[in-house]
Design a protein around this nucleic acid. Structure first.
Lengths: 148, 148
DNA sequence: TTATTATATAGGAATTATTCTTATTTGTCA
DNA sequence: TGACAAATAAGAATAATTCCTATATAATAA
């Protein structure tokens, strides 16, 4: 997995006028150690073990700020945002029933270029193929049709 | 845009054991006429003009059911689900500030095949490239750093 | 066509994720 | 160090989604 060390993290923040706070450092670290594609709530839990007084709002805003810096990415699934510090190109399989996200890699996708007319002046922060569907475990369960 | 006529819609539902109700027919119709990538709330508003007593929950569940049928697709952005009846392959540019979604087409992307190990037993309902970033209008505004 | 029954619906309440507000604190830069 | 814009904590407010319950209805078989 490709991510930033503390030094690069500081640099990324100050280069864009973001203050380097202990909270932000800890939040990035917690995101790294959380693994997978944690929600803000999960990152919050992990940061709390290091900074017991950090507020949820601070964690949430920091994650959004990191996303705007382009040093992490966000993916909304299952009604909540999930954050991902992995900068290496990868793509997502999202199960619409259990909301589990599985990464996959595809050299073919990584080499794709956007059609130039697609993003006139659009500042690209991340580009990801999302495959929506039902995972094998959930298909097996075969829940009722009307949802729930 | 590629979508279903009433007959194909009925067939798609009954083939999977879903009852064909006037609500569901109207909901699909409203989604088509809404255009763009409407949220459940927007579809609800449109359906209401045809069936004034339909409930939000019914609209919401119908949209989720349609998604599971694979006859529409869903895309979560800006904290809400957005529904899309367009079955023709297309991809999304999502502005993280204003949450506007713009479609783009890419023959290159459409021809991509998933690596076989990616989705062992995964039932694919839709496959879409999502480009996250900041649109030109929002870049121009250059809002504050800490969000909001 | 009618009776049966599983499924769907309306209406409203409850839940959950996200965003906002305010008072206070803290990096950063001169 | 001092000034100040930016960030934080705490909790309230908002908005999207899901759930609950009683009733209605589409599909099926007789």
């Amino acid at each position: 997995m490709q991510s930033l060390d503390n030094n690069a993290l500081r640099k990324a923040m100050s280069a864009r006028g973001l203050k380097v706070t202990p909270q932000r450092m800890a939040i990035y670290g917690a995101l790294l150690s959380a693994g997978g594609h944690p929600s803000a709530e999960e990152v919050f839990g992990a940061v709390r073990r290091v900074l017991p007084n950090v507020s949820f709002d601070t964690v949430y805003r920091a994650l959004l700020s990191f996303t705007e810096l382009g040093i992490i990415s966000v993916h909304e699934a299952g009604g909540k945002k999930r954050f991902d510090p992995n900068l290496a190109g990868h793509h997502h399989l999202h199960c619409m029933r259990c909301n589990r996200i599985t990464d996959f890699h595809s050299p073919e996708l990584d080499s794709v270029k956007l059609p130039p007319q697609a993003g006139k002046g659009f500042q690209v922060l991340s580009m990801r193929m999302t495959v929506e569907g039902i995972c094998s475990a959930c298909s097996a369960k075969n829940r009722g049709r009307n949802g729930r």
